[in-house]
Amino acid sequence: MTTCLCRTELRDGFLCARCRSATAGRLRRLPVLYRLLQPELQPAAGAPSYGRVRLVEAPMPAMGLVLSLRGPGGIVSVLEDWWSAMQASRSGSAPVITGTYDERAIRAAKQLTFHLDYLANDWDQGTQFAKEIRSLDETAMDIVCPHDTLERGTLLGPCPAEQADGTVCGATLRHYRSSMSRVTCPWCSSVYPTHSWARLKAWIDHDREDREQEDQELLAG
């Protein structure tokens, strides 16, 4: 007898039909969640600065969880590690890792889905695999699709506030219904009251145009 992820006792295999189906759904969703987490990242420093107020204190990271999901040891690494472990358990060759991180997430998830019958019925690590995939999916879903969708806010763009070291914050700004009269940066805590929104939009648009121009120059070069 073995115990499934949902604590159901099984005579054969390691995942019941319901947990197997749920795991398949999570594997389909994880590459999409990986991509949807991108806008939540703190953009790289180096955007142009023009007349912004310097901060007195250095900002504290507010989206470390997003970085952990998108960085080393995150969604892509977990999927590829389980893919590699599954291949090794079947005496198969090690996966060939190529492509962008988005492509790698898709490929690893597809391979695990393709072998889900083996993972659920024959591999003694099947329960642990499903448990880790569930945890990863739930963590990413809590960020991308929180339970209180009204508090998700309207995406505005990167914060243009200048930090103490002269770099631009660049964290994702959102407007929440619960804070109608102001926009607050979750990274550096800069506050933009209603009367500054026109200037804020101009800053965001200016940064976006500069980034698009840089992308075009990179492609052309």
Results as ranks from 00 to 15, higher is better:
171 A>C: 04
137 D>L: 02
146 P>Y: 08
189 S>C: 10
148 D>M: 11
148 D>R: 10
161 A>K: 13
187 W>F: 07
164 A>M: 10
162 E>G: 01
133 I>K: 11
136 L>P: 03
184 T>Y: 02
184 T>E: 15
172 T>Y: 04
139 T>M: 12
171 A>Q: 12
144 V>M: 05
158 P>R: 12
191 V>H: 03
169 C>F: 01
157 G>W: 06
188 C>S: 08
175 H>Y: 01
193 P>R: 04
146 P>C: 08
143 I>F: 03
157 G>I: 07
132 E>G: 00
122 D>C: 11
144 V>S: 03
157 G>F: 06
136 L>S: 01
124 D>G: 12
141 M>I: 02
164 A>K: 08
173 L>W: 07
129 F>T: 02
131 K>Y: 03
173 L>Q: 11
194 T>D: 05
193 P>D: 10
189 S>H: 15
147 H>A: 07
136 L>I: 05
138 E>W: 11
182 R>S: 14
151 E>A: 13
169 C>I: 00
179 S>D: 09
151 E>D: 14
122 D>K: 13
166 G>W: 07
123 W>H: 12
130 A>I: 04
160 P>T: 12
168 V>R: 15
172 T>E: 15
125 Q>L: 09
153 G>A: 09
137 D>K: 02
123 W>Y: 13
150 L>Y: 04
125 Q>G: 13
169 C>V: 01
178 S>T: 13
174 R>N: 03
180 M>D: 10
124 D>V: 11
122 D>T: 09
195 H>T: 11
163 Q>N: 11
157 G>C: 01
175 H>R: 13
155 L>D: 09
175 H>S: 14
154 T>A: 14
123 W>F: 07
126 G>I: 00
146 P>V: 09
158 P>G: 12
134 R>D: 13
142 D>Y: 06
169 C>A: 06
136 L>G: 05
190 S>R: 12
155 L>T: 01
187 W>D: 09
158 P>K: 07
181 S>G: 12
154 T>L: 15
134 R>C: 01
125 Q>W: 03
179 S>R: 14
141 M>A: 14
152 R>S: 10
131 K>V: 05
143 I>H: 01
185 C>G: 10
175 H>F: 08
193 P>K: 05
141 M>V: 08
125 Q>P: 00
195 H>N: 11
124 D>R: 12
174 R>A: 08
122 D>G: 05
169 C>E: 05
131 K>G: 02
161 A>Q: 15
125 Q>N: 09
164 A>Q: 14
122 D>P: 01
160 P>H: 09
188 C>T: 08
162 E>K: 02
122 D>L: 11
190 S>L: 04
121 N>E: 14
138 E>Q: 15
144 V>A: 04
174 R>P: 05
143 I>S: 07
184 T>M: 13
163 Q>W: 12
157 G>V: 07
135 S>E: 15
193 P>L: 05
170 G>V: 00
128 Q>D: 06
157 G>S: 06
130 A>M: 03
152 R>K: 13
143 I>L: 15
191 V>P: 00
155 L>W: 06
191 V>Y: 01
182 R>A: 15
120 A>H: 05
185 C>A: 11
194 T>Q: 07
185 C>H: 03
134 R>K: 15
138 E>R: 15
144 V>L: 06
191 V>D: 12
189 S>Y: 05
139 T>E: 10
